[in-house]
Design a protein around this nucleic acid. Structure first.
Lengths: 213, 213
DNA sequence: CGCCTCGCCTACCGAGTGGTAGTCACCCAC
DNA sequence: GTGGGTGACTACCACTCGGTAGGCGAGGCG
């Protein structure tokens, strides 16, 4: 039950924001009444914290896999980006909730961000600096700023893809109720930008048969 | 008077979101009572539209300057990015309000985005394709997706710089009430990423005496 | 059976919301 | 002076919000 509440709360917080999504809305989406919801979560703020906690918990399961990939080789470097994109794009509400919290409560989110992404970015930054020493990575990359920018780019691209997507290709059909998948063109380009702004040799593969699939 | 209301409304919408900022809060920030505010703007929704309209109006004054820069030469290409960054970073609330609206009302914002940034991105995309034909721009750039990504990156970087900034350098002093300027490291890296993921020859200048000015 | 806990309910509360009605002081043209 | 518009105010409205009080049925257990 609590998990259904968390799921619906995540969905509605993502769509309307924390203040915009009322407990009544969330309860109705779950199929119960408001006081029943408050039985499981003592307050709306507690519900918000639980939503965030659940998401960061899930995130923490993904991180070790990425770190292992990061330290193994250059080609696997992309895997970090792909893994991050996968995490957010398999449920874009994660990106939206996170972005909204970043906007709504920056002071509260700053320590959380430090706690959950700082150590990971530290490893990646070390790897970038090593790459710079070996000449594989552009010398003028600012590792911390680069990593922050790429995370930011992935997060916001997925969060607002519904709007930006209509910029790059007209909506296929109007009035559809389903979520509309994220344009692969956008995601591919995000990865390409991240890769080609990091490594000095941008194209090991000649990009000739990319249209196969 | 109306301009003061718009200014405070922009500030509070940016900080707390549309539903989170009450008319009473805005009126108090201006120094008047709520009904007096509703005398100037007939409804809260009208106030929101006016805030957006004022911002897009201001934006439309900047666009022609950028377009002139875009069609003049390669070095001036960066000027577009710098101009865009300047527009948002001289008042980060613009980025925050825009991002919030993108999250809150995607269906309403999509046509606005098309109207106000579509023509401009069209010109830039043409320029990118010309650059690709001449070999100055990476062949695997997806012009529309690239431009969308860069706009997204600039917007979100400035919108949440307060949180991300603490990732790349510890806050100099705690408890400061002033807005805290955007880290130049972040902005420089955003520009570098945008530039170096576009052009094939990333460094015409050897980046040796860049610290002169 | 009696009793307790769990999960949910209806009914209600005070506070705050966006918005309206009506008033009042000012100022400027006639 | 006087009429009318301007821009602010006080007082109020219906409504929704997050949260509480208390009851009710089902199931486990002595």
């Amino acid at each position: 039950m609590a998990s259904q509440i968390l799921a619906q709360a995540t969905r509605l917080f993502a769509a309307r924001g924390f203040v915009g999504a009322s407990l009544q809305d969330i309860a109705k989406a779950v199929g119960i009444r408001k006081p029943s919801l408050l039985y499981h979560f003592p307050s709306k703020d507690e519900l918000r914290r639980s939503v965030l906690e659940q998401m960061l918990e899930h995130w923490n399961e993904v991180v070790p896999r990425m770190l292992r990939a990061a330290t193994s080789g250059e080609a696997q470097f992309d895997a970090i980006g792909e893994e991050t994109i996968k995490f957010f794009s398999e449920d874009p509400d994660r990106a939206r909730v996170l972005l909204r919290e970043l906007l709504d409560r920056p002071d509260e989110m700053a320590p959380l961000v430090r706690l959950h992404v700082q150590p990971w970015t530290g490893v990646v930054c070390d790897y970038i600096r090593k790459g710079q020493a070996q000449g594989r990575v552009h010398a003028d990359v600012d590792p911390e700023a680069y990593v922050s920018s790429v995370i930011n780019l992935i997060l916001s691209t997925i969060a607002v893809h519904a709007v930006v997507g209509t910029l790059i290709e007209p909506p296929t059909s109007e009035g559809d109720g389903e979520p509309a998948p994220i344009s692969p063109r956008l995601l591919d380009e995000v990865l390409r930008v991240a890769r080609s702004s990091l490594f000095v040799s941008p194209a090991p593969q000649p990009a000739l048969a990319t249209e196969t699939s």
